[in-house]
C-alpha cells in the first residue's frame, strides 16, 4: 500500500537557499537531516519540537515551499521535486494545503467569503461550484455568519478559521497547520484545534499539526518528536506522554497532569497506564491511593 506521505532520508540545509532571510537561517540552524516518516490517509499527526528544531522546515518541504537538499518526498507515491511541471505543482499544492502561523499574513481579500473563494478561483473552478464550496467551507468552520465581514475586524481564532476554510474550499486531501495556533489566545487555540479534529473525523482529511504545545499534540492520533533536525521519537500520545525523558530532551513541557504522573514515577511510585487529561490522571491516582489502603 502506498502511504499518503512518505519521506526518505530527507535533508535540508538553509545554506543552499540564498534567498532565505537571516532569521530563517537561524531558526533552521539544525536544518533537517535523515528524516524518514510515513503518514497515512485520514491520520491526525502532530509534529512537535522546540523553536528551531526543524519541525516547520519539515512541513514546508512537503508541498515544495522549500526544496530538499537531499532525500525524497512522495505524496501518494508520486515524487515531489522542483522538476515537476506547473500543473503537477498546482495539483500538489491543492492536495496538500497549508495554514500558516500569522493569521494576518495569509488572507488576501477584504471580505471573508471573497478570501475563501481565492483558492478555487485560482484553480479555475466554475463560478456556481465556487459558491457552493465557499458556503460549505464557511459552514464547516462555523464562520457562515461572518461571510460578508472584513477580515481585519475578526479575532485571531476567527481569522485562522477563515484561512482554514480557504484551504478546505480547494478540497485538499491533507492539511498542514504550521504553528497555526502559536499567535492565538487559549480560546482561539481551542477553536482551531476543534476544527482540525472535525476535518479528520468528519471529512477524512489527513491533518498534520506542527506545534510546540504538548496539550495540543495530545489530541492527535500519533506524535512525531523532532529535535535538532532529527526524529527522536514517535508514538501515540500515551506512549509519548509517559516518556518524560524524551519530552525533556526535546525541550518541551508536558501539561501539568501528565507531568505530575511523570514526577510521581521519578520519585519511585509505580504508576500503571498513562493519563493525559485531568480525568484520566485522577482515575490513576485514586486507584493508586485505594490500592495503598488495601495493602
Amino acid at each position: 500500500m502506498t502511504h499518503l506521505i512518505e519521506t526518505r532520508e530527507l535533508c535540508f540545509s538553509y545554506d543552499d537557499e540564498e534567498n532565505e532571510s537571516t532569521e530563517n537561517k537561524l531558526e533552521g540552524k539544525y536544518a533537517l537531516c535523515g528524516v524518514n516518516i510515513t503518514i497515512d490517509k485520514g491520520e491526525f499527526v502532530a509534529v512537535v519540537g522546540r523553536n528551531g528544531s526543524g519541525k516547520s522546515t519539515f512541513a514546508k518541504l512537503l508541498n515544495l515551499v522549500l526544496e530538499a537538499s537531499s532525500g525524497e518526498v512522495y505524496i501518494d507515491g508520486k515524487k515531489v521535486s522542483p522538476e515537476m511541471t506547473d500543473e503537477e505543482l498546482l495539483d500538489l499544492r491543492r492536495r496538500v494545503g497549508m495554514v500558516f502561523q500569522n493569521p494576518d499574513n495569509q488572507l488576501v481579500a477584504t471580505i471573508v467569503e471573497e478570501d475563501v473563494a481565492f483558492g478555487p478561483e485560482n484553480l479555475g473552478i466554475p463560478s456556481a461550484e465556487i459558491r457552493e464550496r465557499v458556503d460549505a467551507a464557511l459552514e464547516l468552520v462555523g464562520m457562515t455568519e461572518y461571510a460578508r465581514h472584513e477580515p481585519h475586524r475578526l479575532s485571531g481564532g476567527q481569522k485562522q478559521r477563515v484561512a482554514i476554510a480557504g484551504i478546505i474550499a480547494m478540497m485538499p486531501e491533507c492539511m498542514i497547520f504550521d504553528e497555526s495556533t502559536a499567535m492565538l489566545d487559549p480560546s482561539g487555540r481551542a477553536e482551531v484545534v476543534d476544527v482540525m479534529e472535525k476535518l479528520v473525523r468528519e471529512k477524512g482529511i489527513t491533518v498534520i499539526n506542527i506545534t510546540h504545545l504538548m496539550s495540543e499534540a495530545a489530541r492527535a492520533d500519533r506524535i512525531i518528536v523532532i529535535n535538532e533536525g532529527k526524529v527522536i521519537g514517535e508514538g501515540t500520545p500515551k506512549e509519548i506522554f509517559t516518556n518524560t525523558e524524551l519530552v525533556r530532551r526535546a525541550g518541551l513541557e508536558l501539561p501539568q497532569c501528565a507531568a505530575l504522573l511523570g514526577e510521581l514515577r521519578a520519585r519511585g511510585v509505580r504508576i500503571d497506564g498513562a493519563g493525559i487529561t485531568p480525568d484520566e490522571c485522577a482515575d490513576i491516582i485514586i486507584k493508586k491511593l485505594q490500592n495503598r489502603e488495601e495493602e
Binding site: Q256, C257, L260, P278, D279, A282, I285, I286
Partner: peptide, 20 residues
Amino acid sequence: VGLDVPEITKLAELLASRGF
C-alpha cells in the same frame, strides 16, 4: 468569565470530589 484554572488545580478538585 471564560477563563480556566491551572490544570493541576482542576485535578485537585476532581480528586477532592472523589475523596482525596
